[in-house]
Design a protein around this nucleic acid. Structure first.
Lengths: 196, 196, 196, 196
DNA sequence: TATGAATGAGTGTTCATTCAT
DNA sequence: TATGAATGAACACTCATTCAT
């Protein structure tokens, strides 16, 4: 009789190992053997649970994006309903310590770069981008006309991504407070400059 | 009797081919053979002129950064001397059509991602970042106190990088005018909000 | 409480699945997992009943040869006792519809080829060949001198094998009537040409 | 400057090594490394000259069939023009010592078996079969009515293949003289039994 | 009796690098 | 200066086998 409930555990072990390995040595040097060894498992297990290496990377990216999505939902639920609070919550979700410390930013950028030439990853990426942009544009539009709202959303999205991007280069962690402060200021500037 | 000046030509051919190949199929799939074939040369030639593959990629990244540097110099020279004009010139250099169309953004992001785990590339990256940041901070500081100037520089640098980043995902080209408009607005906001 | 008689059933399920898989995708692509899945069982069951993969293939080949042997016995028992009728019965056994349709010929050739480098399979093969040859030579010798009888047996055995061989290449089934007709003519030719 | 004329030599070395390895350990155990080592070359060279393993095997089978074709042409050219002599020449080509000694029969059967599930090999096989059959049927038809000629051709082709088949199992060589004698007798039988 | 999770050796293939020409 | 033949280490992937349940 096979072990019950082992599959989700194994999958998570392998995905976690993938994050660690990408963080430590990069995707280019991340072999199936490296990842499996980091997870304390054998190489064959990757095929067993993910089909092949691409399947594992795909699952890993899905999880990254899923975590971001969850962080959004959580922060927005705790915030007040007014646009400014909601926009700040969206910023907070991105610069939550759970996201900005450790491997998150490096893995995120790694998958972003990889998605430039892998349609399936690009698809996941675009879905995520679209969601962030839509949320931002919607909240800005509650206080601004349509076009300024869209431009504010584009600007804030770029600002957030740019702050993450720069965090990926330094080995350590981003200064979340500082990043948040910069983004908050941008929100207020947009809300005031183009207020209805 | 060796041909005069053949070396710079060959080096440039190979670097250009590297850009094209990275743009088309990505760094992960860019082999020495692929690049050499794109350049119309043999595989052995890479070792001849660049030592090894890393040497070629290194030279390619140096050229990317060098082109950005030249674009900065050119745009700043043509601009008025006041801080706002100089800052706008720095923005213009980044969103010059020569930079925002074709493979530039993808190759730039590719090298950024690669530099996370390659010290030599990271070193080049940091030098470049530092120069942009210094320029931005210096210009902001002509109108703002030290700390607000530094934060404005960090914000604008992130905004510029974020706009490039988002341009790398879409296959085509960034909307330079729109990006410039967003960045201009950010400059004016910082100059006004924190004016001395 | 173990089920009674489950072992012969499982063994037969796996052997049948082996035939089907060899017929459909060939021995080179026939994995333990493929065969077990075709039988509707798990991979581990093969070790349970046959020790290892070679044991299963061995049992499968034994069954192929056993079926041929049974077909011989049956056809000879139904035939008249004279040499010509007995030789025809041996031919009939080989070109019985149950043998010439479906996977029989392909599996037969597959094992023949495999036996070239697997001593155990070769041993089984030789036992079977010897039996057919002995039977043919014995029957021919009832009407012919020793040496012509041996040569006639060699010729008829080769002719039968050759007709099977050619049947293995076409996906469908051999034309049993035509094959039988060719072999009958060969028998009569030998009996008349070298009659005592 | 690359070595001239090295390619045909290397290709032949690898094909010869393929024959030897298949003869000695069989196709199932013939790895690219085994073959390359037998040829005194490295594993990578197979990809260099044949693309992949399948390409090498394909080339090897083409050569087997090509050699048979050449043997036919040679023997037929040396024979008298009458049907009986031409048919004997076709038999002689098949049982020429160069064909019946050493690895020829085993490799031939190996590829025959492999072709059951590899369309490209089956295609080559069928072309070859068709040629032998056409030649046989044409020569028989010079002395026999159409249908008996076709049946005689089918019978002789099967007889030849059957004699080869049985030769493949014994490790050593076929008894060419005996095989030829059996086939000659079959030719005469057909020519006399059904003479116009 | 039966499962299928897990292993790890083995394979085909890729590719940076070397080097004779 | 330039070629491309040749190498061999490294990789992703397959699969027979084992074994806890």
């Amino acid at each position: 009789m096979p072990k019950k409930g082992i599959e989700p555990l194994r999958r998570q072990q392998l995905i976690d190992a993938t994050f660690q390995v990408i963080h430590e040595i990069g995707l280019a040097d991340a072999t199936v053997a490296t990842i499996a060894r980091k997870a304390g498992l054998s190489t064959g297990i990757v095929a067993h649970y993910f089909g092949d290496k691409a399947g594992l990377l795909n699952a890993a990216m899905r999880q990254i994006l899923s975590q971001l999505k969850d962080a959004f939902a959580q922060h927005r639920g705790q915030a007040a309903a007014d646009p400014r609070s909601q926009l700040r919550a969206l910023v907070d979700a991105n610069f939550d310590p759970s996201q900005t410390s450790g491997p998150a930013m490096r893995v995120w950028l790694t998958f972003w770069a990889a998605s430039m030439h892998q349609p399936e990853l690009a698809r996941l990426q675009r879905i995520n981008d679209q969601r962030l942009y839509s949320n931002l544009a919607y909240q800005f539009h509650r206080s601004l006309p349509a076009e300024p709202a869209r431009e504010a959303a584009r600007g804030l999205a770029a600002l957030i991504d740019g702050l993450w991007l720069r965090g990926s280069l330094v080995g350590g962690q981003i200064d979340g407070d500082n990043a948040r402060h910069i983004a908050y200021a941008y929100i207020d500037f947009q809300l005031q400059a183009n207020a209805l």
